[in-house]
């Protein structure tokens, strides 16, 4: 038993130095040199200022923006009370409500009512009223975006066809008919929208 202490200990320490220190340091150096955009989190700039990450959703509310999916993230305020902090990317996670959770259905019902009020009668896409796994979902379904487009066009005094065309232009589609889904990145959509007209 004792004869194994030296090899075990030195192997663990050596692997820690190689795999835990040298390797990540070298790989980070290489990543920063060759793919700095991705390595730093795909940060997007506008007028020289970083406005977010292309991969991470942001919170948008109000009639002039495309609205992202509900986010289940929460934090505490200065008084220690739990408050909703949607799209706070210093944390991540879903709601963890089960399929028979009464509270979850209450939330979904009020979101459905709000959705119908904002975008008029019609189908309610599943993704528009349910929380995502990460709380930072950057995308909404193409159906959801197209449902929102006319109301946003009115709020921004743009022709509805222009906004719908923008959605279709930025949409990502299922690859080879199998991989991925039909969706739109909300930040990129709103960024393009803000270039067309001031909110």
């Amino acid at each position: 038993m004792l004869r194994e202490i030296r090899p075990a200990l030195s192997l663990v320490l050596l692997f820690t130095l190689i795999l835990g220190v040298a390797l990540p340091a070298a790989f980070t150096g290489l990543a920063q040199a060759v793919f700095p955009f991705q390595a730093n989190g795909s940060l997007l700039e506008r007028n020289g200022q970083i406005i977010g990450s292309a991969l991470i959703g942001q919170n948008f509310a109000g009639p002039t923006w495309f609205t992202p999916r509900p986010s289940a993230l929460s934090g505490t305020d200065a008084k220690g009370k739990t408050i909703a902090t949607p799209y706070d990317a210093s944390e991540s996670g879903g709601s963890s409500s089960g399929p028979t959770n009464a509270g979850m259905f209450g939330n979904v019902k009020s979101r459905i009512a709000a959705y119908l009020k904002a975008y008029g009668p019609g189908p309610v896409p599943d993704d528009a009223v349910t929380t995502s796994g990460s709380g930072l979902d950057p995308d909404i379904s193409l159906e959801n975006a197209l449902r929102q487009a006319p109301a946003i066009a009115i709020a921004r005094k743009l022709p509805p066809a222009t906004v719908t065309a923008l959605v279709n232009r930025l949409a990502a589609h299922r690859l080879l008919g199998v991989i991925g889904t039909d969706h739109v990145n909300v930040l990129k959509l709103n960024l393009a929208l803000s270039r067309m007209s001031a909110p």
Binding site: G41, Q58, N59, F60, A89, L191
Partner: peptide, 13 residues
């Protein structure tokens, strides 16, 4: 970062 809608967002990485 200062978000498009005028808020701030801290991004974990």
């Amino acid at each position: 970062v200062h978000t498009l809608a005028g808020g701030t967002q801290t991004i974990g990485r």
